[in-house]
């Protein structure tokens, strides 16, 4: 599958599912029922969506024969992981 199409699908899926979970969380909050599980899952899903989208482009570019772009994507993913680790140990 083309990298653009794959990114689109992952971003849309991430957005719809996280927004749904957050909406459920809000509804539960107003009903006075346990809500944190839904909100926390929604936020987690939301925050990992961009990384999932970028990671998905690596095999996609590779299969399209665009190895330099696969390498660029890999660098971005590694930088994201490095930035996360750096923030944790600062």
């Amino acid at each position: 599958m083309k990298a653009d199409r794959l990114c689109y699908l992952i971003l849309t899926l991430g957005m719809v599912s996280s927004a749904s979970l957050l909406a459920i969380g809000l509804a539960l909050y107003f009903l006075g029922l346990p809500y944190r599980w839904a909100m926390l899952s929604g936020i987690t899903l939301l925050l990992f969506t961009p990384m999932a989208a970028v990671s998905s482009t690596i095999p996609s570019f590779f299969m399209e024969g665009e190895r330099p772009n696969a390498f660029v994507s890999l660098i971005v993913v590694l930088f994201m992981i490095f930035a996360l680790l750096l923030s944790f140990f600062r």
Partner: peptide, 16 residues
């Protein structure tokens, strides 16, 4: 698209 990549890394730190 680029903003999401940068912001998600920072947001994950805040969240964790």
């Amino acid at each position: 698209f680029m903003i999401g990549i940068t912001a998600s890394t920072a947001a994950l730190v805040y969240f964790s």
